[in-house]
């Protein structure tokens, strides 16, 4: 009896328009409708231009069939190069970011000033300009090739954001932890290593993953100095084949697949840490 009454009230409540709109099924349908409208407009536009879709030519750029069986095509090779480039740059960003964060939190007046100067310069300069500076100016001076210049440029640019994540993480630790560590005689370095950073990592993991996603996205910019990676591979294929629509859709989908995986990981980590504490 009670159950039946409950069911009636639930059904009645779910009929309200606002509830209806916020239900998951309706949201998905609305979303698909919007995507369909955009796609239809795009396809109509392409048809009006007389664009000749040749999707059948795309798979060879992902996987090539050779005598030895399947081999990664140009786009997959490019994606792998993008990931390696971003990975190297991210390691550099972590290293520089930690140093900048520690300098900003230190007692050294000069250290704090240097860190502030670094942050102001990097944060207020477009990534593209920074890349040109590293490649066309410091490149010839220090004999950096385009790959090294790209890694350093991306590493430096993201070090600014990474250092803020480190700083926030370190600041989130209560002062009592510093005092307790000092009281048993730990040095400042030991305190960071054994007490502060292991605790701060928990707070830093989710935003760091987000920053890794940003790194992969901004790594596309090095295509302007023709470093071999996914976007450059896409440009090269298009200049050979004129398949611009199909290739850019594919390139976008590849970036999306990687960054979505990382974002999901970040959400998962955030959720797990939130329930743990």
């Amino acid at each position: 009896m009670v159950e039946a009454a409950d069911r009636v009230t639930i059904r009645r409540r779910s009929l309200r328009p606002r509830r209806l709109l916020s239900s998951r099924l309706v949201s998905v349908l609305l979303y698909l409708l919007v995507v369909w409208l955009i796609l239809r407009t795009a396809l109509n536009g392409a048809a009006a231009m007389g664009y000749n879709w040749q999707w059948y030519r795309i798979p060879q750029f992902l996987l090539e069939r050779t005598e030895d069986g399947f081999q990664a095509g140009e786009l997959l090779t490019g994606l792998l190069a993008s990931l390696i480039l971003s990975g190297l740059a991210f390691l550099l960003a972590l290293f520089l970011g930690l140093i900048v964060a520690l300098l900003r939190l230190s007692d050294l007046v000069v250290g704090r000033a240097v860190a502030r100067l670094f942050l102001e310069i990097v944060r207020n300069m477009p990534l593209l300009v920074l890349l040109y500076v590293f490649y066309y100016v410091t490149g010839p001076i220090f004999g950096l090739n385009r790959y090294v210049a790209s890694v350093i440029c991306l590493g430096v640019y993201h070090a600014a954001l990474v250092s803020e994540i480190f700083r926030a993480g370190i600041n989130s630790i209560a002062t009592g932890q510093w005092e307790a560590a000092a009281a048993i005689g730990l040095s400042r370095r030991q305190t960071y290593r054994f007490v502060i950073l292991p605790q701060a990592v928990r707070f830093m993991l989710p935003p760091m993953t987000g920053e890794a996603v940003n790194m992969i996205k901004s790594s596309a910019i090095v295509s302007v100095i023709a470093v071999a990676e996914l976007t450059t591979a896409g440009r090269n294929i298009i200049s050979d084949t004129y398949l611009s629509f199909e290739i850019w859709f594919t390139v976008a989908a590849l970036y999306l697949a990687v960054t979505l995986c990382l974002s999901l990981l970040a959400t998962h980590l955030e959720h797990r840490l939130a329930t743990k504490s």
Partner: peptide, 26 residues
């Protein structure tokens, strides 16, 4: 040695690790 009002134990370490950190590192 010092004992604080708020204990200030290291929450990411076990009791034993809290106790041995100073003896091992210092």
């Amino acid at each position: 040695g010092m004992v604080f009002q708020q204990f200030n134990l290291f929450p990411h370490l076990t009791v034993l690790e809290n106790l041995t950190l100073g003896p091992i590192r210092v």
